[in-house]
Simulated assay, not measured.
Amino acid sequence: MPKTKKSIVFCHGLWADGSCFSKLIVPLQAEGYECIAAQYGLNTTAEDVAAAKETIGRVSGPVILVGHSYGGSVITGAGTDDRVVGLVYIAALAPDADETSQTQQAKFPGTDVFSQIEVVDGRIWLRPEGTKYFCGDLSEEEQKLVWATQGAPKPDLFEAKVGGTAWKSKPSWYIVAKKDHTVHPDLERAMAERMGATTYEVASSHVPMLSQPGFVLDVIRKAAGA
């Protein structure tokens, strides 16, 4: 029987791993979508983009890439792959060719979460108190789980260019998190406008896929059906 549905590959951000998409993957799989989440070390952007491309190879094409937060930088680089036909950004970064994740953020006001981080043993860790700025609309139990499963990045992760600008050539959808205290909502709106994305706004913290999964699922379904 011929394949009719697009496959979906998820790319996570800082202080997260692929499990942050669990509320999306389970229902999408039930609907017949091939889904997989890229797991990478947050050591270098080049390694993370390469891991995303390798993960694309584990599902059938064509592929929709979904990136959250720094995962938006990852899909911006990895999305130039010919197997990718669309991009979904969730409260995400999306650097241009001459930008890095850091220079992009520097153009907008700093956010509260960065007052709750510390560098220890060569990694940037989110303090337990920082979850209120990262995922404060989740239950206390879920916030503790987010903290306990965080992926801590290398300090210079944001300094590298991503090696491609997929949103210049691929259809894009963007979810703005209006109550975000990690990536500034004005940055999100500016990125969505610049890439000409189909844009949606939701009253959410930085993690709409956990706090508003139904909303995010609807956007992914629209992207996958386009």
Rank of each mutant, 00 (worst) to 15 (best):
M1C: 11
K5H: 10
K6S: 09
I8N: 00
V9Q: 04
F10D: 00
F10L: 09
F10Q: 02
H12G: 07
G13C: 10
G13M: 09
G13V: 11
W15A: 00
G18P: 07
S22T: 10
K23R: 13
L24A: 01
L28K: 00
Q29M: 15
G32R: 05
E34P: 00
C35M: 14
I36F: 01
I36K: 13
Y40P: 02
G41R: 04
L42Y: 02
N43V: 12
N43S: 07
T45Q: 10
A46G: 03
A46Q: 15
A50N: 07
A51V: 08
K53M: 13
E54G: 06
E54C: 06
E54R: 15
T55C: 09
T55K: 07
R58G: 01
S60A: 15
P62G: 11
V63T: 12
I64R: 04
V66Q: 00
G67W: 00
Y70K: 08
Y70V: 07
Y70N: 06
G72D: 06
G72H: 06
G72L: 07
I75Q: 03
I75P: 03
I75V: 15
G77Q: 08
T80Q: 12
T80R: 09
D81T: 10
D82H: 12
R83H: 03
V84S: 09
V84A: 12
V84F: 14
V85R: 08
P95E: 00
E99W: 00
T100S: 08
S101A: 15
Q102E: 13
T103N: 05
T103I: 08
Q104G: 01
Q105C: 08
F108G: 00
P109A: 04
G110R: 13
T111D: 02
V113E: 01
V113M: 09
F114A: 04
F114D: 05
F114E: 04
S115C: 05
Q116V: 05
V120A: 06
D121C: 04
G122Q: 09
I124T: 08
I124R: 00
W125R: 14
W125T: 02
L126M: 15
R127T: 14
P128W: 06
G130M: 09
T131A: 07
K132L: 11
Y133D: 06
C135F: 09
D137H: 08
S139E: 08
E140C: 04
E140D: 12
E141Y: 04
E142Y: 02
Q143W: 06
K144S: 13
L145H: 04
A148N: 09
A148F: 08
A148K: 11
Q150H: 05
G151S: 11
A152L: 01
A152R: 03
A160G: 07
A160C: 08
K161N: 03
K161Y: 01
G164E: 07
K168P: 01
S169H: 13
K170F: 11
K170S: 13
K170Y: 12
S172V: 07
W173Q: 02
H181E: 11
H181V: 02
V183H: 01
H184K: 05
D186E: 15
D186R: 02
E188P: 00
A192D: 01
E193H: 05
R194H: 12
A197S: 14
A197F: 03
Y200I: 04
V202M: 08
S205P: 03
H206F: 05
P208D: 12
P208C: 14
L210K: 00
S211T: 15
P213K: 06
D218T: 13
R221Y: 09
K222C: 06
G225T: 12
G225D: 14
